[in-house]
Simulated scan of single mutants.
Amino acid sequence: MERTAAGGATDPAPVPEAGLPGAAGLLDGLPRQRGPVGATAVRATAAPAGTEVAAPGARSPLLRPWRLLPTPTGTPFTLAYAVVLTVTSLIAAYADPGVVHALHQGSSTDVAHLLRTPGLVLLASALWIAGGILAPYTLCLLFVLTTLERRIGGARTALVFLAGHVLATLATEVPVGLAVLAGHLPDSSLHRLDYGVSFGVAGCVGALAGLLRPWLRWPVLALFGGMLALDLLALTDPLTNWGHLIALGTGVGMWPALRRGRSEPRRVL
């Protein structure tokens, strides 16, 4: 179709821009754009609010392996926590053994400390990690926290970690106190040394699984839960092993809240 100008000349009808959906009628009133910038602008206009629009030719964030590492802007909570764990690991490795033992005892979430200073020891016990900052469990912690924080933000990641850490600690230590009162355990059980990040990690693994696609969610839960179950069957430390399973279940129980509050519509993987 041709349009007639005032002077009688004809102008060719606008040709839809390459790469844009629809014919010219869908773009009436929109100025022509050049190159991929125009395509991006139109797609961003048509995208629902809150949807992340990638630039043409850009790789998916899930294909960038460096996104598994904490960064100051992307994952400030995980990075700050990693710095704290690095400092405490250096203290544990190089400070006087007597000082380190006193710090561990002061941070222990045993029954005696939970009765006197519950808030202090629940936080302090999560500042120490067995095996040092380069231990496999530490690397697992950083990977899980980084991935979870990129999905739900630092504040909610911290809440998930604390929920697993606190609930599993109370669920395992309160029965110890009751058993001592009933005479089934000696008084020394009230001072059982208990510290570390493993309950928080297990809670975050359970929460993160709920944001994965089903083909990955259930294998992750089966593999991690299976390892925890095998540890429990070995009877090396049943109280701690039960705590890991309780923390994992705590993270799984948070799926509905995390899914409702997601800041992005896409799921991890």
Rank of each mutant, 00 (worst) to 15 (best):
L69F: 03
P70D: 10
P70G: 13
T71G: 15
T71P: 00
P72N: 07
T73R: 14
G74S: 14
G74T: 09
T75P: 05
T75V: 08
T78N: 06
L79E: 08
Y81L: 11
Y81D: 06
V83Q: 10
L85P: 02
T86D: 08
V87Q: 11
V87T: 14
V87G: 11
S89I: 03
L90K: 03
A92L: 02
Y94R: 10
Y94W: 09
A95R: 06
P97H: 08
G98N: 04
V99W: 01
V100S: 01
H101K: 05
A102S: 14
H104N: 05
H104W: 09
Q105W: 15
Q105L: 14
G106E: 10
S107T: 11
S108D: 06
D110S: 13
L114H: 05
L115G: 04
R116F: 01
R116T: 15
R116W: 02
G119P: 04
L120F: 12
L120S: 15
L120T: 15
L120N: 12
V121G: 10
A124H: 07
S125L: 02
A126V: 00
W128T: 05
I129H: 13
A130F: 03
G131H: 12
G131M: 13
P136W: 14
T138G: 14
L141V: 07
L142M: 11
L142C: 06
V144C: 08
T146R: 06
T147P: 01
L148S: 01
I152L: 03
I152F: 00
G153R: 02
G154S: 15
R156Q: 05
T157S: 02
A158S: 01
A158P: 01
A158M: 11
L159Y: 00
L159W: 00
V160W: 01
F161N: 02
A163F: 06
A163Y: 02
G164E: 02
V166E: 04
V166T: 14
L167S: 12
L167M: 11
T169V: 06
L170W: 05
A171G: 13
E173C: 03
V174L: 13
V174S: 05
V176E: 07
G177K: 06
G177R: 06
L178K: 04
L185P: 00
P186I: 14
P186S: 13
P186N: 12
D187R: 13
D187V: 09
S189C: 05
